[in-house]
Amino acid sequence: MNLETIKSELEAAVPGCRLELVANPSPSGQHSLRIDAAHAVAVAVCLRDAPGLRFDLCSNVTGIDWPGKQTTEKVKLRKLVDGTQQEVEELRTTTTPGSLEVVYHLFSIEKKHGPIVLRMSTQDRDANAHLPSLTPVWRSAELQEREIFDLFGVVFDGHPDLRRLLMWDEFVDHPMRRDYVGPDDYEYEPTAHDEVLRRANQHLSEAAAKLPSEAVGNQQSETDGNRLSEGGGR
């Protein structure tokens, strides 16, 4: 199936939908189709039911986190300085809000073709991280969208049962985000006592003393090295 023809077919069937081809430079050649949130359900239904397409199996649903970037660059500008045109260098900081992306891999059991890759992006990573749920179209997305809600924090509007899937209900953060900072392991040690409890308290006080930006985690080799030497020096 050619993605171009699918795109034109969808554009004819769903008036007003905005589709965009996303090229994939990898040898896998699995290019994808970006759809807009407003027409997502209509596009999905068309993909599922159109006789030539019949993508009846939504195999894989997953999220991707694209954090926002802050870039600072020097820009040369022509400005009026003291009444004359001069070239002035200025520092300009641009901040992109970042987004959360959801990817659907569709196959057809009836026609035995696929995959076609659908992508949807949220506007940002906080308040507007909303997307329409495709669970009413393919029920296989039910648990996977719950997982994305849990681990990435995308809110799926129209999902029948949107709860956390893998983390417990009281958990606050979204662990699969790139900027997630892991908790102090010892705090979550289920049976903390004696030595472990002593170290847990030590870790907590150390973490409190540190700057929040330097908080625990992410420096795997170092922390493990420490743990090893601690274990040895009993």
């Binding site: 430079p25 990898s26 040898p27 896998s28 894989n60």
Partner: peptide
């Protein structure tokens, strides 16, 4: 690997 994506099953 070079930048890109793949789904293998």
């Amino acid at each position: 690997p070079k930048p890109g994506e793949a789904y293998g099953r």
